[in-house]
């Protein structure tokens, strides 16, 4: 068909013919001119690595000698080795604890900031700025706070006449410090998201509920929380996804010590890949992490879909 049309209008030069073709197929042509390089790059840097990682999960390889296909042996080793299970449990423990405390605290502060307070910008800055600091630099400096003998907490305990806390032998202290540090760096995001959600609720709805006698906890429970549901789901799921990938604080503060009690998946993958040269196990853990977080993402989509149909 194109050919007959082209013959009818009988363009004289090839340039005219191109212009005619271009104007007729502009959408498709422009789309693929733009998308082709982007998709080539995308396949190389985003799709291929995921497939390669999956492939490496099935081989035994140290990067130098010949790789050996081992099937599901790496996954079996993951389940059978107490270290890997401990690391998975630690990761879940840190992710969930940090998530719940950050979400609750973020919500409380957002509620307080939503009360038309004076100096909103200042409080918001003080809560949000830790989120923007470099995790690596702040984690490295955080060591100053817990260093035995010369650290800040050590000095405070001494001034209070308490025995010194030495994280290298005190698992609880090491864990609590990591959690406090992670909450300090992360709570700003959930605060800002909840604040955005609260500011999106029209004051008329709240006023109407107040006229009907709802106040305090009942107002929160029956009016605010249901309206905030989409934002809450978002905060919880992204918080879980981020918490699962906690890395710098662990690597630079405790390095998984004492005795792997603070070791998490990211640091173990890093160690297996770049220190133990066990590429197979590193890739296997990355695959397991991918599966867990894919599940979380789908959960997110499903819950979000649910809440939007609820509204409709």
């Amino acid at each position: 068909m194109e050919r007959t049309v082209a013959l009818q209008s009988a363009p004289s030069s090839s340039r005219e013919r191109f212009n005619l073709f271009y104007s007729r197929h502009r959408h498709t042509m422009e789309a693929w001119i733009i998308l082709t390089p982007i998709l080539i790059y995308y396949v190389i840097f985003y799709v291929a690595p995921v497939i390669a990682n999956l492939f490496v999960s099935f081989i035994d390889w140290n990067g130098l000698q010949e790789a050996k296909w081992v099937g599901l042996a790496n996954f079996e080793a993951f389940i059978r080795t107490p270290l890997y299970i401990q690391v998975l449990v630690n990761t879940l423990f840190f992710a969930i604890t940090i998530l719940l405390v950050s979400a609750l605290l973020g919500f409380l502060v957002a509620m307080a900031l939503n009360e038309k307070v004076k100096g909103l910008g200042i409080y918001r800055t003080m809560w949000y700025v830790p989120t923007l600091t470099s995790a690596a630099v702040t984690a490295q400096v955080a060591n100053v706070f817990i260093a035995p003998g010369t650290g800040v907490i050590s000095g405070i305990m001494k001034s209070l006449g308490q025995p010194e806390l030495i994280w290298q032998i005190n698992t609880d202290f090491a864990r609590v410090f990591i959690i406090v540090f992670a909450i300090w760096r992360g709570v700003g995001s959930s605060m800002l998201l909840f604040l955005a959600g609260l500011q999106g609720i029209s004051t008329e709805v709240i006023d109407a509920a107040k006229v009907d006698g709802a106040s305090g906890w009942r107002l929160i429970r029956h009016i605010i929380l249901p309206l905030l549901r989409p934002m809450t789901v978002f905060v919880l799921v992204t918080g879980l996804i981020n918490g699962f990938q906690i890395f710098e604080p662990i690597l630079l503060i405790t390095n998984g010590q004492p005795g792997n009690t603070t070791n998490v998946m990211m640091t173990q993958i890093y160690k297996d890949a770049f220190q133990n040269q066990d590429f197979g196990m590193a890739a296997t853990q990355a695959t397991i992490m991918l599966l867990i977080l894919l599940w979380a993402s789908f959960l997110n989509l499903r819950l979000m879909g649910q809440s939007s149909t609820d509204e409709a």
């Binding site: 996804i241 699962f244 990938q245 990355a286 991918l290």
Partner: peptide, 8 residues
Amino acid sequence: PGIVYLLP
């Protein structure tokens, strides 16, 4: 998650 890209 970013870690999946890292090793490959």
